[in-house]
C-alpha cells in the first residue's frame, strides 16, 4: 500500500497550514469585539478581556448597514437566480437536443469563461450607463446573469440521469417543457442547491465590477463599504474594519455549514473533465 502509518510529520505540516490560514480569521473575529485601545495593547489575546459591541454600533452609525446588507443580498440573489435559470435551460438544450452548430455554440459558451473582465468592462460600463443603471445593483447583476461554468456543471449533473427516463417520457409524447420541469429539475435538486450556493457566495463577495457601477455610497455593497475602511496610507481602524468583515463572512459561512458536502462535490466535479 502507498499509505503507511508513520505519517505524523505530514499531519503536523497540514495542521500548521490550517492554523496559518484560519488564525487570521479567528483573530479578526476576536478583535472586532475589542476597543481600538485594547486591540492595540493586547493584539494577540484571543478572548477580549472586556468584550464590546462598540465597533458594530459605531459601524451602524457611520454607514447604513441594513441598506448595504440588503443591497448585497439583492445583487447576489438576482445573479444567482439568473445564472441558475439560464444555466439549467442551456444545459437542457445541450444535453437533450441534437441541432446544427451544437459543438460550435458549446465551444463559444465555454470559451467565455476565459475572457478577462477588462476586455468587456468598457463596453459593459457604457451599456449600463446608457440604461441608467449606474449606482443600481441591478446594473451590477444584469451583465452577469449567465455563466458558462453553471452550464457545464448542470450538463455534468444531467449526464447522470439515465437517458431511458427522458427517452421514455418523449416516446409517451410528453412535451419537453414538462420533462424539463417535472423530471429534470426535481432530479437535479442537489446540484441546483450546490451550484446556486457557490454562485451566491461568489456574488456576495464580488468587488471589481461593482466598484465600476456603484459610485454612490448609498448603493454600495458590503465589499465596497469594507474597502472604504481600509486606508492605503496606514491608520486604518482595524477593529472597526474587522467588525464589518465579520458581518460579511457570516452568510457564506452559514451556507457552507449547511451545504458543505454539496458545495465541495460541485467544486470537485468542476475540475474533472
Amino acid at each position: 500500500m502507498l499509505t503507511e502509518k508513520r505519517n505524523w510529520g505530514w499531519h503536523i505540516l497540514l495542521i500548521l497550514i490550517i492554523l496559518a490560514i484560519m488564525l487570521p480569521v479567528v483573530f479578526m473575529i476576536s478583535n472586532s469585539f475589542k476597543t481600538l485601545q485594547e486591540s492595540y495593547h493586547s493584539i494577540l489575546q484571543l478572548i477580549p478581556s472586556n468584550p464590546t459591541l462598540g465597533n458594530y454600533l459605531t459601524l451602524n452609525k457611520q454607514i447604513n448597514l441594513l441598506r448595504m446588507v440588503s443591497n448585497t443580498f439583492l445583487m447576489a440573489m438576482i445573479v444567482t437566480l439568473g445564472k441558475v435559470g439560464t444555466g439549467l435551460l442551456a444545459a437542457y438544450a445541450f444535453q437533450n437536443f441534437h441541432f446544427k452548430g451544437k459543438q460550435l455554440i458549446y465551444f463559444i459558451f465555454v470559451a467565455t469563461i476565459f475572457v478577462p473582465f477588462t476586455t468587456v468592462m468598457i463596453p459593459n460600463y457604457l451599456v449600463i450607463a446608457k440604461m441608467n443603471l449606474l449606482n443600481n445593483v441591478i446594473g451590477v447583476a444584469l451583465p452577469q446573469m449567465c455563466d458558462a461554468t453553471g452550464i457545464m456543471l448542470f450538463i455534468k449533473a444531467m449526464e447522470k440521469i439515465p437517458s431511458s427516463l427522458t427517452e421514455s417520457a418523449k416516446v409517451d409524447g410528453i412535451p419537453n417543457r414538462r420533462i424539463f420541469m417535472n423530471i429534470i429539475i426535481p432530479l437535479l435538486k442537489p446540484s441546483i442547491i450546490s451550484v446556486g450556493a457557490i454562485f451566491f457566495i461568489n456574488s456576495w463577495n464580488e468587488y471589481v465590477w461593482p466598484t465600476l457601477v456603484l459610485k454612490d455610497k448609498s448603493s454600495f455593497t458590503l465589499p465596497l463599504a469594507l474597502q472604504n475602511y481600509i486606508s492605503s496610507e496606514g491608520g486604518t481602524n482595524f477593529p472597526l474594519a474587522m467588525a464589518l468583515a465579520v458581518i460579511m463572512i457570516v452568510p457564506p459561512l452559514l451556507i457552507y455549514m449547511v451545504f458543505q458536502k454539496y458545495i465541495l462535490n460541485s467544486i470537485s466535479s468542476s475540475g474533472l473533465k
Binding site: 444555466g87 438544450a93 459593459n124 451599456v127 452550464i151 424539463f180
Partner: peptide, 26 residues
Amino acid sequence: RLLPFLYLLPSALLLLVFMIVPIGYT
C-alpha cells in the same frame, strides 16, 4: 427544430450582449 434554440435563448442573448459584442467593441 427551433425548440433547442428557445432553451438557449436567455443565455445566448446575455453572452452575446455582455461578452461577445463587447469583445468586438473593445
